[in-house]
Amino acid sequence: MMNEKSISARQKPASALLWLSYTAFFFIQPVVEPSLRLWLGTLTLFVVFLVVFSIYIRTDSETWRRWMIAATFAIGLASFPWNGGASTFFVYTAAFLPFSVATTGWVLTFFSLEAFSILGESYWFHLHWQNAAFAIFLLLVIGAGNIFFAEQRRADCKLRMAHEEIEALAALAERERIARDLHDVLGHTLSLIVLKAELAGRLVERDPQRAATEIGDVERTARTALAEVREAIGGYRARGLAAEIETARRTLDAAEVTLTVENDMGNAKLTAAEETVLALALREAVTNIVRHAKAKNCRLRFVSEGGRRKLLVEDDGEHALVREGNGLRGMRERIEALGGSLRLERERGTRLFIELPLRAEGVVS
């Protein structure tokens, strides 16, 4: 029985020759009951079928394929009254039709029309009912089987397309994550390196020992930045809020900004995802303060109330930037992905409000 493999012959014309073996049934009657007229008619229609079959397996047009299926069925009808082996062409029709017509209802409708055509022809030419019944049996059985294979192939195709789309979206999301994390990591760390290098330059003459200490910090910070870049590419995981607060304190100290922490974030019961998001948000906020604020004081406040976790980062500087950049955009996307919100106020300093929903204990995210 021809199945889904018969359709793959379109892409591999050489392998389609295998399916021509079914035409051997068309030559049974000329061999058993030889006559010149029978042989000439059989060979003529066989050559016509070869042309039709060749077009079918080579064309990419669904319209042409359907016309070739109709031509194959017509060849069967034309030869069935004088060659019982013409039921072979009904087999080809039943095999190909489900793969060229996507709707099962239409396939069954065409099968019904073909069956009635065979019956009508048999009645008109007074053919043996056994031949007609056998031809209709082959048409329906092979057609029903190939409807199943065609639907399965379409389902596999849809599943494959869905997987490809998911992989493409995952790759896009990963690229966006890496871009956001590299911005946060490198922006913060390079700002710290610049600050310490400038400080060391100012101290090199009047306090060489402290200048050497600052240069040592620059080296350690650069090594840390290299490790963080590797972490970002491989899948960034924040070191924790407590460690991030200490890093923020050192960065702000180097920029001569006083940091006040009103609550201990490190003791909060946060999920890994929440801690990562808050740590990265704090890092971006401190980076912006160092780069743009010209602030003298920074206040960090963290509370859990009203079913929300709230983080406030406030400074008394003057921010020249009013447009949301990549850093804030990435911060907002991370926070909103956890069901939270971000709000920024720039009156008499800058206040960054971050809220996350308070999850029940024991819930793992």
Results as ranks from 00 to 15, higher is better:
327 G>N: 05
7 I>N: 06
334 R>D: 06
65 R>H: 07
364 V>R: 09
305 E>N: 09
77 L>V: 10
37 R>F: 08
136 I>M: 13
293 A>Y: 01
214 E>G: 01
73 F>C: 11
169 L>T: 07
64 W>Q: 04
185 V>P: 03
302 F>M: 08
130 Q>H: 11
4 E>Q: 08
243 A>Q: 12
74 A>T: 08
305 E>H: 09
94 A>D: 02
99 F>W: 09
65 R>P: 01
197 A>L: 12
336 E>D: 10
123 Y>S: 14
65 R>D: 02
42 T>M: 13
361 E>G: 10
28 I>P: 01
157 C>N: 14
142 I>Y: 02
329 R>N: 03
152 Q>L: 08
259 L>I: 03
183 H>E: 14
61 S>H: 13
211 A>T: 08
324 E>R: 12
140 L>R: 07
152 Q>D: 10
193 I>S: 06
39 W>A: 04
223 R>V: 07
112 S>K: 07
349 G>E: 00
254 A>W: 09
364 V>M: 05
142 I>M: 10
126 H>K: 08
1 M>G: 05
224 T>A: 11
316 D>G: 03
322 V>C: 04
190 L>S: 15
96 F>A: 03
8 S>C: 11
266 G>M: 12
124 W>M: 00
250 R>T: 05
78 A>F: 12
138 L>K: 12
96 F>S: 03
109 T>Q: 05
102 A>M: 06
85 G>P: 00
329 R>E: 01
132 A>Y: 00
167 E>D: 12
354 I>V: 15
32 V>E: 14
13 P>W: 05
302 F>H: 11
73 F>V: 14
101 V>F: 00
248 A>I: 02
43 L>H: 04
96 F>D: 00
156 D>M: 13
63 T>D: 08
286 V>R: 06
